[in-house]
């Protein structure tokens, strides 16, 4: 009986570590790296995409945005998980905002034009895109 508390503690530790491990596995879509966009508000980004002021949804399918069913550019599912932006920039907040606000400076051969979106708006849009973690299976 003297070993009781020890056993309980050991079980608890094992159990807890099991939970942690499971939690880590359960989130198969683990985000690598920083996804915090300075000055970006996801709700405002969603509003910008919904208004479609810059035509984003004309080319991209964007989860959660009505009428954003474009097939001209890549779909933006799981943007929080993507390794690269535009096939060349490591996916981090700085690069994503740079790409959204001025793709032609990064890749003049890209079909994505400079839409005139401001850096501040691009930060909001990036913040929204980083809420997207589901990839259709």
């Amino acid at each position: 009986m003297g070993r009781g508390p020890l056993r309980i503690a050991a079980t608890a530790v094992l159990g807890l570590s099991g939970c942690v491990a499971l939690a880590a596995c359960g989130d198969g879509n683990a985000v690598q790296g920083n996804r915090e966009v300075a000055g970006g508000e996801a709700a405002r980004g969603k509003a910008i995409l919904t208004a479609n002021t810059h035509g984003c949804g004309g080319c991209h399918t964007i989860p959660g945005i009505p009428n954003a069913h474009g097939t001209v550019g890549p779909p933006l599912h799981g943007m929080a998980l993507r390794g690269y932006v535009a096939g060349r920039l490591p996916n981090d907040p700085g690069n994503l905002v740079r790409w959204i606000s001025g793709p032609q400076e990064i890749d003049p051969r890209s079909a994505m034009p400079d839409t005139g979106i401001t850096t501040a708006e691009a930060a909001h849009v990036a913040a929204y895109l980083y809420t997207l973690r589901d990839i259709p299976k």
Partner: peptide, 19 residues
């Protein structure tokens, strides 16, 4: 169907049938 601008115009030209 879209506001005017470089982005929407490019989207329209390449993806009229989506839009």
């Amino acid at each position: 169907v879209l506001p005017n601008g470089v982005g929407p115009l490019a989207a329209w030209i390449a993806g009229v049938q989506d839009i």
